[in-house]
């Protein structure tokens, strides 16, 4: 049986206590919410924190607040709750869809929206057991000094594999963080970095407390996910779209984000520009999709061939736009 390495476990009762514990124990401590990403990684010794700070008692993390300006989601809300919440389904269908496609039902009962947004980057050379990685000679992301995906690469190329992160970026979400030095708000887009090791723009003590998504009244949105099986699997390519059309059908605003093709979600600015001010017809959608797909530079470190993932990017952007348009 694969087992967890030993650790001490703390159960803080509020955010202040949690953050101060984290500050006290430093980088050897980790926050633990649903555990669905952290515990497998610990069992494979990808990380071996001395201390875990359990977040389950923090009631603030499970609040949902909906008003005219948008929605606030506590980071501790389970993925199934996000997927099945009638208001979220109505107001942010791409988000509920992305959440509903994470892994499998049991895991969505445990895993949290915050956990999915902070999901560790993944790589076939990294998400392996300790004996496997030892046989490999370890890698840049953990215990080694070489990136096996591209041996000359100075940075780790592990992939952002969160379903919800591209949607959060597409919906212009704000992340509310609390750290030793107080509270901070950051745009989702700013939160992610294209580096497989330092993929989150936050200090170790900062805790993602809530996610604020502005009102998207009048917006249309979509989410498409590529994977081999219809359950359990992470995305190997994903696309989130959000379009704002006026009454005449002219695109006032567009946000298109690719997931699982880099170490962070990739915003397709060129495609967005192409769509803005135009009525999206088949030809324009095709052109925009091709423009967006240029961003997809997948590496050979997840399931399916990188060539296919690259080729499918345009298809998926097109389908995600069409899904938003209800086509």
């Amino acid at each position: 049986m694969l087992r967890l390495p030993p650790f001490e476990y703390y159960t803080p009762q509020n955010i202040t206590e949690a953050v101060s514990l984290k500050a006290r124990f430093g980088e050897d401590a980790m926050y633990s919410a649903g555990g669905t990403d952290l515990y497998p990684n610990m069992k494979r010794k990808q990380c071996t924190p001395n201390t875990l700070i359990g977040l389950n008692e923090l009631k603030e993390l499970s609040l949902i607040n909906i008003d005219d300006d948008g929605i606030s989601l506590g980071s501790g809300i389970s993925l199934n709750e996000v997927a099945n919440h009638p208001e979220i389904q109505k107001l942010y269908p791409a988000l509920s869809k992305a959440a509903s496609l994470v892994s499998a039902p049991q895991l969505r009962n445990m895993g949290t929206i915050g956990g999915n947004l902070c999901l560790d980057t993944r790589c076939t050379y990294y998400n392996q057991t300790y004996p496997w990685r030892k046989a490999l000679g370890f890698c840049l992301k953990k215990d080694g000094d070489i990136c096996w995906v591209a041996r000359s690469s100075p940075v780790c190329l592990a992939i952002s594999s969160s379903d919800c992160a591209p949607v959060a970026v597409a919906l212009n979400a704000e992340f509310h963080l609390t750290g030793e030095n107080g509270q901070r708000i950051t745009a989702a887009e700013e939160f992610y970095l294209n580096d497989g090791i330092s993929f989150l723009n936050k200090t170790h003590d900062e805790l993602l407390v809530s996610i604020r998504i502005p009102s998207h009244e009048g917006w249309l949105m979509g989410y498409k996910k590529l994977r081999r099986r219809d359950s359990i699997d992470f995305p190997v390519l994903s696309v989130a779209t959000a379009l704002h059309l006026d009454k005449a059908g002219v695109c006032k605003n567009a946000r298109i984000v690719l997931g699982a093709v880099a170490s962070c979600p990739q915003r397709a600015l060129q495609a967005e520009t192409l769509l803005k001010g135009e009525k999206p017809n088949a030809e324009l959608i095709e052109t925009s999709a091709i423009a967006a797909a240029k961003l997809a530079k997948p590496m050979d470190n997840t399931d399916m061939t990188l060539g296919y993932r690259k080729k499918m990017a345009a298809n998926f952007v097109k389908e995600a736009i069409n899904e938003a348009l209800g086509q």
Binding site: T11, G35, T36, Y39, G54, N56, Q106, L107, N109, M110
Partner: peptide, 13 residues
């Protein structure tokens, strides 16, 4: 009442 995976949860939780 909710199905969860006992391999990824601690008794203390």
């Amino acid at each position: 009442g909710e199905p969860i995976l006992s391999c990824l949860i601690l008794p203390i939780e």
